[in-house]
Amino acid sequence: MVQTEGIRYWRDMRARYNLIGRRCGKCSRVYFPARSICLDCHRHSIGKMDPYKLQGRGTVSTFTIVHDGDPRFGVQVPYILALIQMEEGPRMTAQLVDIDPPQVTIGMRVHTVFRKIGTVHTEGVIHYGYKFAPDSMPHLRA
């Protein structure tokens, strides 16, 4: 059996594992996910978008509890999906874990944790990456 679905996620794997985005060398705006052209500096940024590692800290901008999810998330349903405003500037889409839905609030501080994201079928590649947990859970010191 050949399964190539993992390949397109492999290209972004390092960025996903270690939160590697880009920073515009001209205006210092940080992007995650990476962009090769700055939204503000346009062509002046080409060639100046350098890799930039995010520290993995932010706040919840908004969130939802997904009850009717993509089947790839299987027993993780219901899960909490959120937009996280990162300290460095970008906003990211990710799941919130280690918290019960009623405790989630807009503005709460969160940090990244490393989790299984999903798998397309039981014999497929397992995708790993970031999720976020509330700062009330043990975490790396800032």
């Binding site: 939802t64 009717d68 889409t93």
Partner: peptide
């Protein structure tokens, strides 16, 4: 697909997040 859907975003979820932000 790479940076929203991959992490669990469905269409209802994206609009639900807009709804919650609008409520707030």
């Amino acid at each position: 697909a790479q940076w929203e859907t991959f992490f669990g975003a469905t269409f209802p979820a994206l609009f639900a997040m807009m709804a919650r932000a609008h409520m707030q």
